[in-house]
């Protein structure tokens, strides 16, 4: 049997006295689309940070395709195939859109160390950056500064950055939060169209988006998993209705 794409074992993260993540164990199969839901402050983002290496957990372990990565730096995990977006758009504000994408393209390879030739000497980078922007509908703005992008466009660029670091497992932290209905539809369609060989783990508040995309849904509450199941099972569960739908 092939190992799961992501395996999290008894993961705990404490901030001072607060247990934001409290002994979570989780397994996501290769190719699966998993959605995490749960009220604000449930610990979803913190769990993401610990899996991708942005934060180191207080206890527990993380494995990527069967390989223990708990001790590896974030950059190493990215090189091994993890990619992510941030809940609050984290893009390179002083650079052009194309430069943003180039940074994503060269991040996991050796080319980020090239010092003796300008970026322009590598036409494939420019071409792939434009393709990446085309994919999220921002190609026309390739040479503008990110400063001029709207909130929604930044969300799209955020997604493009993650996609162009060529991930095998992609973590999306509320990709549609704060978007207009039109933008929301566009992004969720794009996520739905991602190839199946990319394993997807996504935090999403919008139940329509979440249940439309997910193979399985995990519900978090106060740092713990209270339910895991198919979208239909989760929707039908009275406890989930209580802690989650009650809050929206």
């Amino acid at each position: 049997m092939t190992p799961p794409a992501i395996e999290v074992g008894a993961l705990t993260k404490e901030f001072g006295g607060l247990r934001a993540v409290d002994g979570i164990s989780l397994s996501v199969a290769t190719g699966e689309r998993r959605v995490l839901i749960g009220p604000n402050g449930a610990g979803k983002t913190t769990l993401f940070h610990c899996i991708t290496g942005t934060l180191s957990p207080s206890a527990g372990r993380v494995a990527l395709f069967g390989r223990d990565v708990t001790a590896l730096a974030e950059s190493r995990r990215t090189a091994l195939g993890m990619g992510r977006t941030f809940q609050i758009s984290n893009v390179f504000a002083n650079l052009s859109l194309a430069e943003n994408l180039v940074l994503a393209l060269i991040g996991t390879g050796r080319r980020k160390w090239i010092m003796h030739r300008p970026v322009g000497a590598y036409p494939d980078l420019r071409r792939r950056a434009l393709e990446g922007l085309e994919h999220v509908g921002l190609r026309q703005r390739a040479d503008e500064s990110v400063k001029h992008l709207s909130y929604g466009e930044r969300r799209q660029l955020e997604l493009a950055l993650a996609l162009n670091s060529n991930p095998k497992v992609l973590f999306l932290d509320e990709p549609c939060a704060g978007l207009s209905p039109g933008e929301r539809q566009r992004i969720s369609k794009m996520i739905g169209a991602l190839p199946r060989d990319i394993t997807l783990v996504m935090i999403e508040h919008d139940m329509d988006v979440a249940l439309g995309l997910a193979d399985r849904v995990t519900v978090l509450h106060r740092g713990r998993i209270i339910l895991e199941g198919s979208p239909a099972e989760v929707q039908a569960n009275p406890e989930v209705r209580d802690v989650y739908f009650g809050h929206v």
């Binding site: 974030e74 984290n90 002083n94």
Partner: peptide, 14 residues
């Protein structure tokens, strides 16, 4: 310049 603009983002890009 990427690191200057956002070190957390460059880290997560590898």
């Amino acid at each position: 310049r990427g690191i200057k603009a956002s070190e957390t983002r460059t880290r997560s890009l590898g």
